[in-house]
């Protein structure tokens, strides 16, 4: 779905960021256009997850240099909830549990907040029920999960599917999937990947952060980036991931 003419969704230039006084990102450049699927790979500690948290605005992470625009707007001028309402979605590596708040209540509040932001009608609980029962099929979840507290007592795989359910309901413009494949068995991986694929359109984009080539067999990227030492050191097509799988990361690190 790559087209040089499609509009730029996310443009990151020379991004530097730190957490707890340690510089993690040291000059990241990345451009994502509508309709594209990007994969960011790299070893532990290369800065992949930091990059996704910085884009979403986690309060522990501080931008120390560079810029990022999201649909032409200065991303770092927006509060985390404003970024979310603008259509930026982060599927968490470790989804948190929210005791006492039901999945469906959370989904409805998030959905209606977005509807209001977009100048559209809010849905009442019954209308929303219909919508969410349609969406839940995307991740093959049992509707009984809707009545349970968010992620409370969910298995690792169920939590990740729940993240993709939220993505399906909120229909973000840009979804960043932070190691969504980690901790998934092969069936759950397939379900999650099918879910993501079914949500792809020429108007949205996905950035996957992952260690493994495995996920990319299911969600085929247009671009693969290798991150090392807080920078993107190599960009290629999907064949780059296969090469990494075969050769490991060391040859790239040496080259960098």
């Amino acid at each position: 779905m790559i087209s040089k003419d499609s509009r730029i969704m996310l443009e990151v230039k020379n991004l530097h960021a730190e957490v707890g006084g340690i510089d993690i990102l040291k000059g990241v450049d990345l451009t994502v256009r509508a309709g594209e699927v990007h994969a960011i790979m790299g070893i532990n500690g290369s800065g992949k997850s930091t990059f996704s948290k910085v884009l979403a605005g986690h309060p522990d992470y501080h931008v120390t240099g560079g810029t990022a625009t999201f649909e032409g707007k200065d991303l770092f001028a927006l509060e985390p909830e404003e970024r979310a309402r603008a259509g930026l979605f982060l599927a968490f590596q470790y989804p948190v549990e929210i005791p006492g708040v039901s999945n469906s209540a959370l989904l409805r509040l998030a959905y209606n907040t977005l509807q209001t932001e977009r100048g559209l009608e809010e849905l009442d609980p019954l209308e929303f029920e219909d919508l969410v029962h349609e969406k839940i099929k995307v991740v093959e979840m049992d509707p009984s999960f809707l009545g349970r507290s968010v992620n409370e007592g969910f298995s690792g795989g169920e939590k990740k599917r729940n993240e993709i359910l939220q993505m399906a309901v909120l229909e973000p413009k840009l979804a960043i999937l932070d190691e969504t494949d980690s901790g998934l068995d092969i069936d759950a991986l397939r379900i999650v990947a099918n879910g993501v694929n079914s949500l792809l359109t020429p108007d949205n984009a996905v950035v996957m952060v992952t260690h493994y080539q495995r996920l990319l067999n299911y969600i085929v990227p247009d671009y693969v980036h290798v991150m090392d030492g807080g920078r993107i050191v190599r960009t290629g097509g999907k064949e780059l991931a296969l090469e990494l799988e075969a050769r490991g990361y060391d040859w790239l690190r040496a080259a960098a």
Binding site: L90, I98, P99, G100, S149, L170
Partner: peptide
């Protein structure tokens, strides 16, 4: 941060958590 990332501001998030809890 999770609530914020889903577009929900902190006041609404707290009230949702408290109501659920209570």
């Amino acid at each position: 941060f999770f609530f914020a990332q889903r577009g929900i501001g902190s006041e609404e998030a707290i009230s949702m958590i408290i109501n659920g809890f209570c």
